[in-house]
Design a protein around this nucleic acid. Structure first.
Length: 389
DNA sequence: TCTGGGGTCCTAGGACCC
DNA sequence: TCTGGGGTCCTAGGACCC
């Protein structure tokens, strides 16, 4: 028995929130994004899109396209507020069987809710209107028997679209779309599929070409199932535990300055620690990312003996990774991520505090204490001190 | 004046164990 | 002599999504 899955996607969500806070912005070209020299557009209002402005475009380019563009720096507290209103409204009025897909989109299993409804499309139209009138948010809704099809359907018409994908009509609907519009196929894979003569989603749905299988690996079967209407229809209401907690930041200007770099590592480590503590998580693995001036990314990670969310430990391990791996070239971004997360206070974490002193060399502990005491970026490199003496 | 920041998942090689 | 094969963990890189 087929289910009725809805995918609901808020239109230009961040920009819409800004308009709700300041109604004088309504109808004006507006973006939410970075306002500094390295900022990019996160969301463009539909008025701004008329100028050719779109997400991921550098802000200075957007400004060139539309000199009287209004720029708002992101305010995630505001967005989370409206996001919660949106999800709660849907849980109350459609079904609690709601899966959050991101801050501005979700899946709902509406099978039960629509079972005895003689006019399900009418219900969905009214829902869309109600979200607009009562919360002030426009959305596009996809209706289909699987999550993938619902997602593709909501994407088909924006803003304020309602699109239905039925299994028996796929060959005349979904399959006609160009391959780059398929969820999961991005800018690296699309051209390679085109080179293998896979031009549409229908081409992928029906191919058995071994070259295509080789290119997509395990995903080949997943994508084929999706495109043929046999993807998952399980809407999972529980929110999942985060698998990693990370922060990264781009320098205003590329830098090779050790003090500047370590100061940013410290700031990122502190943010990671704070958030991990707030969420009651500890992590076993600490990863850093260094992005060089030429966009080359280098990741390095280390797995500890015991999980942590301590700011000093995270910072210290991050700097050790940095010292060991940094090649003296200008950096544009650094980041710190805590991985391999578990719940704080779980058994694994209850190991003796004395382990700190057994597992670390005296030098390491001294550096930690110094940094703790003065609460400033440690301009000490580990190699500046002699080990274990 | 090129290109943010938050994530998840997959692949592939090497270490290590049995 | 000069060599197996499976499983798991760790690490690094990359694709993709919002």
């Amino acid at each position: 028995m087929s289910k009725v899955i809805l995918h609901i996607d808020l239109n230009a969500f961040f920009a819409a929130c800004e308009v709700l806070r300041d109604p004088t912005l309504k109808g004006k070209p507006l973006i939410v994004g970075g306002a500094n020299r390295r900022g990019i557009v996160s969301t463009a209002s539909y008025e701004a899109r008329k100028y050719g402005i779109h997400s991921a475009m550098p802000t200075y380019k957007a400004l060139r396209l539309c000199p009287n563009l209004i720029i708002k720096e992101p305010d995630f507290k505001l967005y989370h507020h409206y996001s919660s209103l949106f999800f709660n409204y849907l849980k109350d009025h459609v079904s609690p069987l709601l899966e959050v897909a991101s801050i501005d989109e979700c899946y709902i299993d509406a099978t039960e809710r629509l079972k005895n409804n003689r006019n399900p499309i009418g219900f969905i139209k009214e829902l869309q209107q109600a979200l607009l009138q009562e919360i002030g948010l426009g959305c596009s809704i996809g209706v289909a028997p699987t999550k993938f099809l619902a997602k593709m359907a909501s994407n088909y018409k924006k803003p304020l679209g309602i699109t239905i994908y039925r299994r028996r009509e796929l060959a005349n609907t979904l399959w006609k779309l160009p391959i780059n519009e398929m969820y999961g196929i991005g800018k690296a894979t699309a051209p390679r599929l085109l080179a293998l003569d896979i031009k549409t989603i229908g081409d992928l749905a029906t191919t058995e070409d071994p070259e295509v299988k080789k290119l997509l690996g395990k995903s080949f079967f997943t994508f084929k199932e999706w495109a043929n209407g046999r993807g998952s229809d399980e809407v999972i209401a529980e929110e999942e535990d985060p698998k990693s907690i990370g922060h990264s930041s781009t320098f205003m200007f590329d830098t090779e300055n050790y003090e500047e770099i370590s100061a940013l590592f410290k700031e990122m480590s502190n943010s990671v620690s704070e958030r991990a503590k707030r969420e009651g998580k500890v992590g076993l693995t600490i990863q850093i990312v260094m992005r060089y001036y030429n966009f080359e990314n280098v990741n390095r990670s280390v797995t500890l003996n015991k999980p942590t969310n301590n700011a000093i430990t995270i910072f210290y391990e991050a700097m050790k990774l940095f010292d060991k791996n940094y090649k003296d070239e200008p950096l544009r971004l650094v980041g710190v991520t805590l991985q391999n997360l578990s719940d704080e206070g779980s058994l694994v974490e209850q190991l003796s505090l004395f382990d700190d002193f057994n597992e670390k060399s005296k030098t390491e502990v001294i550096i930690e204490l110094l940094n703790e005491e003065y609460d400033k970026p440690p301009f000490l490199r580990l190699s500046d001190l002699k080990r274990d003496d």
